[in-house]
Design a protein around this nucleic acid. Structure first.
Length: 550
RNA sequence: GCGCCCAUGGCUCAAUUGGACAGAGUGUCGGACUACGGAUCCGAAGGUUGGGGGUUCGACUCCUCCUGGGCGCGCCA
């Protein structure tokens, strides 16, 4: 709203601008909202910023009364900032609107129905999920919720690597375990998988198939072992995600890309465009002409497809499905892969900006400051499931959501556990529960309390500095929301929630909400209801629970 | 060797994408209601943002060099 106001003023002065920065100052003395546009324009207009600011303010003050009624003061400060201060009546009105039309007030429709595909986790179905996957899951989930709320048509997709060497190795490992179990010792494949799960799956096969496959060459029963094993693993993965509260719309099978002819089709499509050639008995993708540092093999000399072949086809297929935007959430160890996938987009004639790859940095799992050794193949492993079991789903998610995704994360199990009773997530949830308990005490239902007389409640008694601070925080939620959407950074919501809780708790401590004074109680309850509304919304986006009791 | 990412109080992290005096939590020290939930609240100490140089009205943020750490660099997946 302020953005539009300033923008209108600026363009009214004959200056071209399509975007103005509006921010919430750190210091209260610097107004409620603020813009540095005049500073930015100083260079272009070759005039002192304060003079420009003055002109902008003058232009704003010329505007229709209705447009500027929200502000008490609009003034220049410092080197040329323009600071706005809300007037109370405006704030009260906004608070009332927040209660009355929550859906409308909580989000900003920036997506306008654009279709976005968010692909995340996509772990090989060869073993259980680890914490790193959990980080990707938490981020993907929150980002999906965030964009969906912002009016995007979001689809969440998990890409299943059910073709190729890794699942074969898994099948072979289970085969070895099966044989060993039935007293026909058999060496595990060199880089095979071990562990509880592998043995459990082997056990299941032993009991259903008996010794039918004893003495059989692996190559003659490979499909059976592979299929059974990876499906079991996939179930395990789904279960873990389920208990983590993360769900997908599509599960895209890599094998189906081969069987459905999409791999061949994808390659043909690029060949038609002149980006595929044969050399040394192999088939190559000319990615070096499209921003990658070298060309990539798609079909090896021995006729086998490389891993990249199916991934290439997968992305061609994604494009074909008609999304406006593709988002991939990858572990940072795949960063070297970005240029070649972007090259696929370019080859298909798309702007590479249609694909955003968000890298999730590595998670180092520690216990008491010491690294926990993890080896998937050896089966020594602390899984996501273990971590959730040890410190809880909400706390685990919160740890992921309180930092930006592209920085390394030290995840200390002991610290997390020790902290869990006083974890920041509870601080936020506690605020929510407290408000709920207020309404319970008051014997009223939060959603219906004011429904018939919402307009008759006098909010002007919400005069305390703390109350105004809370109301401003609530009213400015959409700014945080929009920033989070624009930057694709759900963690901003996390910090906002902590800040909101951090002004509510002291307030609650200092002032009494349920008083003898009826109108005052009504007003305070209305404000608390709004806090609760925003907390609930933020928690929902982050995929966290909003408990009414703790 | 080349490329990408990171470095912020003791510890774990933010900082509105170049904005005003760098903020939280945790830890440490000291305090608080016989009323709405003490998973709360109030106060204190703690910083040359890894180091040097540069760009400009203004730098944690951009450029450059250096130091230290992580990850990549297959006709593996």
């Amino acid at each position: 709203m302020i953005k539009e106001l300033v923008l209108k003023a600026v363009t009214g002065m004959g200056i071209e601008a399509d975007y103005v920065e509006v921010e919430i100052p750190k210091m209260q003395s610097q107004g409620d909202v603020s813009t540095p546009v005049a500073l930015g324009l100083a260079g272009v207009l070759r005039k002192p910023p304060r003079v420009i600011a003055q002109e902008i303010i003058a232009a704003i003050k010329e505007m229709p009364r209705g447009d500027i009624a929200a502000f008490d003061t609009i003034e220049i400060a410092g080197p040329g900032f323009i600071n706005f201060r809300f007037n109370k009546d405006y704030l009260y009105e906004q608070l009332r609107l927040l209660y009355r039309e929550r859906q409308l007030r909580l989000s900003v429709d920036v997506g306008r129905g654009k279709r976005v595909l968010i692909e995340f986790v996509s772990a090989n179905p060869t073993g259980p999920l680890h914490v790193g996957h959990g980080r990707g899951a938490a981020l993907g989930n929150a980002l999906s919720n965030l964009l969906q709320t912002a009016g995007y048509a979001v689809e969440r997709e998990f890409y299943i690597n059910d073709a190729g060497r890794q699942v074969r190795l898994l099948g072979q490992s289970v085969f070895a375990a099966y044989n060993t179990l039935l007293e026909n010792p058999c060496p595990y494949p060199e880089e095979g998988y071990r562990g509880e799960l592998v043995e459990r799956i082997a056990g299941e096969l032993a009991s259903t198939d008996g010794n039918r496959y004893i003495g059989v060459d692996f190559d003659n029963c490979a499909q059976h072992f592979i299929d059974y094993s990876y499906r079991k693993m996939l179930e395990e993965v789904k279960e873990a995600l389920d208990s983590f509260g993360v769900h997908f719309d599509n599960w895209q099978s890599e094998r189906l890309l081969f069987d459905g002819g999409m791999v061949k089709g994808g390659i043909d499509s690029l060949r038609d465009k002149g980006y595929v050639y044969d050399k040394d008995g192999a088939v190559w993708f000319k990615s070096s002409e499209l921003g990658d540092d070298k060309d990539r093999v798609i079909i090896k000399q021995d006729g086998q497809y490389t891993y990249f072949a199916s991934d290439l086809a997968y992305h061609v297929m994604k494009i074909g499905r008609g999304y406006d935007e593709l988002i991939n959430i990858w572990g940072a160890d795949h960063h070297g892969y970005i240029p070649r996938v972007k090259a696929v987009l370019r080859a298909e004639g798309l702007q590479e900006s249609r694909l955003t790859v968000l890298l999730v940095q590595m998670v180092s799992l520690l216990r008491d400051g010491k690294p926990v050794q993890m080896s998937k193949r050896a089966g020594e492993f602390i899984t996501l499931k273990d971590v959730i079991g040890e410190i809880g789903s909400d706390t685990t998610k919160f740890i992921f959501m309180t930092r930006r995704s592209d920085s390394h994360l030290d995840f200390d199990l002991e610290a997390a556990k020790k902290q869990s009773s006083e974890n920041p997530v509870f601080y936020v949830q506690y605020a929510y529960a407290r408000i709920n308990s207020l309404f319970k005490k008051h014997r009223t239902d939060m959603s219906s309390l004011f429904s018939d007389r919402i307009d008759s409640i006098d909010l002007s008694c919400l005069n305390a500095e703390e109350e105004l601070q809370i109301i401003k925080k609530l009213v400015l939620y959409p700014m945080t929301f929009q920033g989070a959407v624009r930057s694709r950074e759900p963690h901003r919501i996390t910090f906002y929630l902590q800040e909101l809780a951090a002004i509510f708790h002291p307030y609650y401590n200092k002032y009494r909400i349920l008083t003898e004074d009826g109108p005052l109680t009504d007003a305070r309850l209305l404000m608390c209801a709004c806090i609760s509304i925003v907390l609930e919304e933020g928690l929902r986006i982050l995929g966290l629970s909003a408990p009414k009791l703790m």
